[in-house]
Simulated scan of single mutants.
Amino acid sequence: MAEQIIKNNIAEISGKVVSEFTYSHEVYGEGFYSFNVEVPRLSDSFDIIPVMVSERLLDVTTSYVGQYVIAQGQFRSYNKHEDGKSRLLLSVFVREIHIVSEPITGNPNSIFLDGFICKKPIYRKTPLGREITDLLLAVNRPYNKSDYIPAIAWGRNARFAQNLEIGTNLCIWGRIQSRTYQKKAGDDAQVSTRIAYEVSISKMEISKKDEEKQGE
């Protein structure tokens, strides 16, 4: 299973560090810290992507703000409980990270996931008529855990994805993106700005394993 997680959840990002380290948690004496990376898009804008790293991979007493990093790992989720509610938080869990002197050329943001649809796909259109299907993918990892990754399909992929059934084994390729949205909180209807993270899908296909099962 440890080898499988490397194959079914592969993320790589590169960009500029834009926040200091924040302590997250400790596992068997190993501390983990989060920070944000500004990852450029092709459209001259950028995504702010949260990264989780072990103190054994980076010196967390040092500030790296303004420096460039290349990070490889998995896109993971965990539930945070606050005010009696549960929120799904996502971040790139780092397996390998490098500090570099300048931005890299090529694709600064890529991800591959092999998982299972765990919620009915939702098809919709934007006010400008663009077709979108929202997906939620469960991706297995060791110790009987799973990561729940939101994803968005566009255009012909959206039309294809809207009819997929819960439990379908789906492979997707794309990039991790951040998106701000407004949320009303409490009876006084106060509006707060939040950031959502998801995978923007560029390519998708039903897993060969799933196709073989359906053909039996």
Results as ranks from 00 to 15, higher is better:
residue 117 I to G: 04
residue 118 C to K: 02
residue 96 E to G: 03
residue 111 I to S: 06
residue 109 N to Y: 09
residue 105 T to C: 03
residue 101 S to V: 07
residue 89 L to P: 00
residue 115 G to T: 13
residue 118 C to P: 02
residue 96 E to N: 10
residue 105 T to N: 12
residue 124 R to H: 06
residue 102 E to R: 14
residue 100 V to W: 09
residue 109 N to W: 07
residue 124 R to D: 13
residue 103 P to S: 10
residue 109 N to I: 11
residue 96 E to R: 11
residue 113 L to N: 04
residue 121 P to V: 04
residue 117 I to E: 03
residue 92 V to T: 06
residue 124 R to K: 15
residue 109 N to K: 11
residue 103 P to T: 11
residue 88 L to A: 07
residue 120 K to V: 14
residue 99 I to P: 04
residue 98 H to S: 14
residue 113 L to Y: 02
residue 90 L to P: 00
residue 87 R to E: 14
residue 115 G to N: 12
residue 103 P to W: 09
residue 104 I to F: 01
residue 104 I to N: 06
residue 104 I to E: 13
residue 100 V to G: 11
residue 125 K to I: 10
residue 123 Y to Q: 05
residue 91 S to C: 09
residue 90 L to Q: 07
residue 106 G to N: 11
residue 114 D to L: 15
residue 114 D to G: 05
residue 89 L to G: 00
residue 97 I to C: 06
residue 101 S to D: 15
residue 121 P to C: 09
residue 95 R to M: 02
residue 94 V to H: 04
residue 125 K to N: 11
residue 95 R to H: 06
residue 92 V to W: 00
residue 99 I to K: 05
residue 113 L to Q: 03
residue 87 R to N: 14
residue 112 F to T: 13
residue 93 F to I: 00
residue 107 N to K: 13
residue 121 P to Y: 06
residue 94 V to Q: 05
residue 87 R to Q: 14
residue 98 H to C: 01
residue 112 F to G: 00
residue 95 R to K: 12
residue 94 V to I: 13
residue 114 D to A: 15
residue 106 G to F: 08
residue 96 E to L: 10
residue 92 V to P: 01
residue 101 S to T: 13
residue 106 G to S: 09
residue 89 L to Y: 02
residue 120 K to W: 00
residue 110 S to G: 03
residue 111 I to Y: 06
residue 112 F to D: 01
residue 90 L to R: 06
residue 126 T to K: 08
residue 117 I to K: 05
residue 115 G to F: 12
residue 89 L to Q: 08
residue 105 T to Y: 03
residue 97 I to Q: 04
residue 107 N to F: 08
residue 107 N to R: 12
residue 116 F to V: 13
residue 84 G to M: 02
residue 102 E to V: 07
residue 95 R to F: 03
residue 101 S to I: 06
residue 99 I to C: 09
residue 100 V to P: 09
residue 122 I to C: 01
residue 93 F to A: 11
residue 110 S to Q: 10
residue 115 G to D: 13
residue 124 R to W: 02
residue 125 K to S: 13
residue 126 T to R: 05
residue 126 T to W: 01
residue 103 P to Y: 12
residue 101 S to E: 15
residue 122 I to F: 10
residue 89 L to R: 12
residue 112 F to E: 06
residue 125 K to R: 15
residue 86 S to G: 12
residue 125 K to W: 00
residue 85 K to M: 07
residue 120 K to E: 14
residue 84 G to V: 10
residue 88 L to D: 07
residue 88 L to N: 15
residue 92 V to L: 15
residue 84 G to F: 07
residue 108 P to N: 11
residue 97 I to L: 09
residue 102 E to P: 01
residue 96 E to M: 06
residue 117 I to T: 04
residue 91 S to L: 02
residue 107 N to Y: 07
residue 103 P to H: 08
residue 94 V to T: 13
residue 95 R to A: 07
residue 124 R to Y: 04
residue 111 I to W: 05
residue 108 P to Y: 06
residue 93 F to P: 00
residue 121 P to K: 04
residue 85 K to W: 01
residue 85 K to R: 13
